[in-house]
Design a protein around this nucleic acid. Structure first.
Lengths: 225, 225
DNA sequence: TCAAAAGTGTTTGCTATACACCCATGA
DNA sequence: TCATGGGTGTATAGCAAACACTTTTGA
């Protein structure tokens, strides 16, 4: 078997992207991991991600790997940080550009493919042992998520197309892990001028139906305060 | 002439670090550029930076290149963002991990070495044409700096070891480009509990001398509000 | 009519802002 | 004594937090 070789005058590191995908399921912050099908760390859980194609944009690589390994697509992606400690990958020097993503808490069909033998959601508080330095990447991503709650509307990305104010409040209560005052929360949420009524009502149970809202700019994260 | 080649089964991009160094000089926000000694963009101004050694930590690379090309060392460094658009370097695929740094407004001796033919400060508002996508990197860095003014004590890094409250206020006024109320600024600055009196007084001119302050934790950037 | 979640205002405390004069020094 | 920047307090307005009851619905 012939093998093409790519040669350089100086040693080059490999470049990968990894994606920390957060969602809210079962009233908990959860994140998406894949079980590695190959060495190194075969059988360990890891972040979805993989090697950058030589003509591929970084964000495009993150999007592609996420879709290939888990079936997740069309989500909010933001560059997090780049991790490149020598020795973080036993094979060769690998620089990983990490992204983080928030996906709505709807049912997502996970489609593990050849690249990964399995894909599953794990509560952020109960993670299995992870491959590489992925625990560090996750800690960084979680810190960034929590920090951005205070000065942006990033958490709205956890919600599906339409939602009720109670669902929005639930999302925030789960993220900050404390109960919030209903009247104050509603005043705050409406004052942001980021959401608008659809005019519909949603019935879920034997009680008064709730007004349905949607984001005025679905793709925009606003800075607040 | 023999040339060692480093070969890989798949093409690898090159990885560089670039550093956006801000300071305040002549009552303006300025940044440090080097004139490129070699192609591509020979003679153009560019950010200090260069190729990652294969066993070198990313931040270490940024620190080293900054020192080699400009003589600047011992400064606050923070990872900014990674830029990797295909085609951003005409030679080969290059992924650049950008850092930004704030240096005190004291006199810094710039020591251009073999890597760069020249190093100089430019006002952030009046930059020359730049090599690669360095204008984009600088815009990102500037945006981050301005954003962090609101929720961190990052701007304190612009000040030398000791300083007066008027000097601190000058720094903020230059950065936000507006006059600030002296009494309110002092109340705010002291309430942060980040600075302490040294007990000294500083005379600069025919008027009352000012109290001298220093950071209580020189190396710490605090999040505020 | 009961259970369950939706919806709604006012009061209070705190933080941010506006604002003007005296102080210490060297020439 | 004058010019220059250093240093100080109070009053007000706007925002954030605390807090309880009525409404609507299906069973």
């Amino acid at each position: 078997m012939t093998q093409t070789l790519y040669s350089y005058a100086y040693p080059h590191p490999a470049v990968t992207t990894d994606v920390v995908v957060f969602t809210i399921r079962d009233r908990r912050l959860q994140l998406l991991l894949i079980r590695r099908a190959m060495e190194p760390f075969q059988g360990h859980w890891a972040l979805p991600g993989g090697f950058l194609n030589i003509d591929e944009d970084l964000e495009r690589c993150a999007t592609r790997e996420l879709k290939e390994e888990t079936g997740v697509h069309g989500v909010y992606l933001e560059q997090l940080c780049t991790f490149g400690r020598p020795g973080r990958d036993p094979r060769e020097r690998v620089i990983s550009v990490a992204y983080f993503a928030l996906v709505p808490s709807e049912h997502l069909t996970l489609q593990p493919t050849s690249d990964a033998s399995d894909a599953a959601w794990f509560p952020q508080a109960k993670l299995p042992p992870l491959a590489f330095d992925h625990d560090e990447i996750i800690r960084t991503a979680h810190g960034r998520l929590i920090a951005k709650l205070d000065y942006s509307t990033i958490a709205f990305q956890f919600l599906p197309e339409t939602f009720t104010l109670s669902e929005l409040q639930d999302t925030y209560e789960i993220l900050v892990d404390e109960a919030l005052d209903k009247r104050n929360f509603r005043k705050w949420a409406l004052a942001l001028e980021q959401i608008e009524e659809t005019g519909e009502l949603r019935r879920r149970g034997n009680h008064r139906p709730a007004r349905v809202y949607q984001l005025t700019h679905r793709d925009r994260i606003d800075y607040i305060r």
